[in-house]
Amino acid sequence: MEAMSVTFARTVDDACAALAEHPGALLLAGGTDLMVGVNRGQVRFADVVVLDRVDELRGWRREGDEIVLGAGLTYAEMGRGELPALVPALAQASRTVGSPQIRNAGTLGGNVATSSPAGDTLPVLAALDATIDLRSAQGARRLAIGEFVTGVKQNALEPGELIEAVRVPVLDGPQEFLKVGTRNAMVISVVSLALVVDRSGRNVRVGLGSVSPVPLRPADAEAHIAGCIDWDTGSAPDAAAVHRFAALVAGAARPIDDHRGTAAYRSHAVGVLARRALLRAFPGGAS
């Protein structure tokens, strides 16, 4: 029988080299998705590359108008320090994940790599037009989040490749993340929505979670509401505009029935979240 190997990578290069050396090795970050499968006997592996000691993956930095978030940042880390001011929707989403135990372990890279429709960072990354930096022993490439997530728990990661970082813009304007679940802690999203306002680009961008195989951008709703906002005064859109925005968001959703909710409920709920997020971003608007 072949012995297993556990590689504690110290650098991204180490990790890529270990992946190249052990084809089929599993990357382990916080373990909050992977270990559930391991405990159930659904995931078997011989080799593991452990990422939590790769300092390059653990931090974040600002590059001009972009924030480069290391794939190994935990939810707890994304919720403290300066990040909540720079990328508010991501910090809000992080705060809704699981429990303190899960937020201390679970990482951004793990959420993106799992590519679940219910992954709470994904609607935020979609709304922000995030890009994903990938690395392998062969080199580096960068994909838009929409190119990266290709289906339910499917993505463009190639064998031997890992997520190094996620790039998001620093925008001028309010951001909201809202999620519906059965309680406040420990809930997988029934639906979720991120809304970010970009005052200099004069647009409102929306990402929807748990209402389609991949995170959705409701383009018609975005175009509609951008045209209803007086960008010079920043005043709130009127009631009819808000109503139409919510209806367009609900109409863009492509949900399914499952044990967490029906498709009809999800479409309804995502419209409610759209209205709520918009009114929080533009307080004083008619509801």
């Binding site: 556990v6 373990g31 909050t32 270990m35 391991v38 593991v48 707890a76 899960i102 201390n104 372990a105």
Partner: peptide, 16 residues
């Protein structure tokens, strides 16, 4: 010092 669920920690990865 950080609270985690030990059922989700791979034991062999907790070395050190």
């Amino acid at each position: 010092g950080e609270l985690v669920c030990s059922c989700l920690v791979l034991a062999a990865a907790a070395v050190g």
